[in-house]
């Protein structure tokens, strides 16, 4: 009961400003005749028509599919690689300068290169997403695995845990909070690249939809696209937070006490 109360309070505290802003927007734009700033109620009507569920299959599913597939491939590549690099100083000295250089290139700028290499189908989009999302995950995994504190490792060694046990039962769990931070940043970048990769050379997907709508003066549609992007980004981030809080309960519990 008290937990529900506290949750309700948090929603109220966090929610009043958005509610205020939306109300203001709704009223201020109600009589708007400006074609670029249509009334919010018109956008909302169009939003319902477009996304529940008229264009969901054509425009939302491809974007989400690319995003999730690309992100998962990045996870599968970057975490093991990060563990290898993070566990060995020598490997790190060789690999890190290269990684630092490549990650400094804005990922969106690489989309044209991927188009040249892979053409315009979804493999190009997935490759761009994977590429962009890999770096934060890789760097954080390296950092997390490397930063295992010496006392913990000493203890594990004196108690004669094997190398494998130290990796799986000490280094990896210890790295998880850092890895998770990397996953979250990687996912945000993946989302950006997923949309950006559709702006170039695609007829499907949320990015393509919004761009085409803008180019064809379908301003209402463009607004609904932007709105859905915002909502999707927010919800996906929320899902991430929840997964993180559940799987790293020990970490958040410990931090709350310190």
């Amino acid at each position: 009961m008290r937990r529900i109360g506290r949750w309700l309070l948090a929603v109220l505290i966090g929610g009043w400003l958005p509610v205020l802003l939306i109300t203001w927007w709704w009223n201020a734009s109600a009589d708007s005749t400006d074609p670029f700033f249509p009334p919010l109620h018109a956008i909302w009507e169009q939003f319902q028509y477009n996304w529940i569920w008229q264009f969901w299959g054509i425009h939302v599913m491809p974007t989400l599919q690319n995003l999730i597939v690309g992100f998962l491939i990045a996870v599968v590549i970057a975490i093991p690689l990060g563990v290898v690099v993070g566990s060995s100083r020598t490997t790190a000295t060789y690999v890190e300068p290269v990684v630092d250089f490549i990650r400094s290139i804005p990922p969106v700028a690489l989309v044209p290169i991927f188009i040249l290499l892979l053409g315009l189908d979804s493999s190009m989009r997935i490759a761009s997403i994977t590429f962009a999302a890999s770096f934060p995950i890789l760097l954080n995994t390296i950092e997390g695995v490397r930063a295992t504190n010496v006392v913990l490792l000493d203890t594990a060694m004196v108690f004669r845990l094997t190398r494998n046990q130290i990796l799986w039962r000490v280094r990896l769990p210890n790295a998880m909070p850092t890895v998770f931070a990397g996953l979250q940043v990687g996912f945000q970048i993946a989302f950006i690249v997923a949309i950006a990769s559709e702006i170039l050379g695609s007829g499907f997907g949320l990015g393509a939809f919004t761009l085409i709508a803008t180019d064809s003066f379908m301003i209402l549609d463009a607004w609904t696209g932007v709105m859905l992007l915002g909502i999707l980004g927010y919800v996906l981030n929320l899902v991430f937070d929840v997964v993180e809080r559940i799987s790293l309960r020990w970490y958040f519990g410990q931090r709350k006490l310190v």
């Binding site: 504190n149 210890n174 020990w250």
Partner: peptide, 8 residues
């Protein structure tokens, strides 16, 4: 604080 595993 550093010799016990906080996740266990």
């Amino acid at each position: 604080t550093r010799s016990l595993m906080p996740w266990l």
